[in-house]
Amino acid sequence: MAAGATVLALVLVACGGGADSGSSGDGRQKVTVAALPLTDAAALYIARDRGLFVREGLDVTIQPVQQSIQALPALSKGQVDVIASANYVTFLQADEKGTLDLRILAEGVRTAPHMMDVLVPKDSPIKTPADLKGKTVAVNILNNIQSLTLDAILDQQGAGHPVYRQIAFPQMGPALEKGQVDAVHAVEPFDSAIQGELKTRVLLDGGSAPVQTLPISGYVTTSAFAEKHAKAAAAFKRAIEAASKIAAQDPSAVRAELPKYTKVTEDQAKTINLPAYPATTDAAQLRRLIELMWKRGLLKKPIDPATLLVK
């Protein structure tokens, strides 16, 4: 009946194939990329603006999204070919649960010093990381990369875990000010923005040991796309890796790019701390992340990242 019809429609959609990535008029392969307005996707925009995609014979369209998980259904249905700045934790979990057959095209960013920090009000009684035990810390998504890395850092220092609360990045400043949380775990550019607007101090570097240079997000696609358009996938990977190399060697390129696709102003872009842009995809680093996820119960079994990488 009614509900059955709707359910049937949903089933058909769920198992239906995706749209085909066609070629544009001049023979270039079309690729649709969903991207977040964060520093993570800088390499994508550098590649676009410096013609690296064109050089590889790709016609790339970029669609902005706010959270990479919002683009997940579109990716699995083929409406979007690649997701840039895709949160590894979310996508590895989706892969394990079976809603997506994940392939990682290229790494996006890894942690770098002070690209995300735990901030507290200047007059807060929290003076050391050990004081965080039992306090509320705001993170962007619960049970995701931020709580994962922060817990790992605290464990290394022998400190207790805080209680996490989910608050979107733009709201973290007001929340801290109103006293709704004791500390916030903010990523750039919100990190610098909050430090500039409010009287805060940095309690902890979110990228400190043992999570230094840990992969955070990357460029993901489905195995369907990687197999059907192996050449385009390889071309995209080359372009991104070349762009990441530029980003790593010349941070000013990134700083120039940021105001174009994020809400970061040019002045802010000059001073924020950038993440690390790896020029190659390293399975070993990904394995570190997966180990961490598995140890904390975010994954049921450790996945071998080598199987997910696209050559």
Binding site: I69, L72, T90, Q93, A94, K97, L142, N143
Partner: peptide, 9 residues
Amino acid sequence: TDAQSRSDL
């Protein structure tokens, strides 16, 4: 929502 974000259908 937590289950949704973890793809835990």
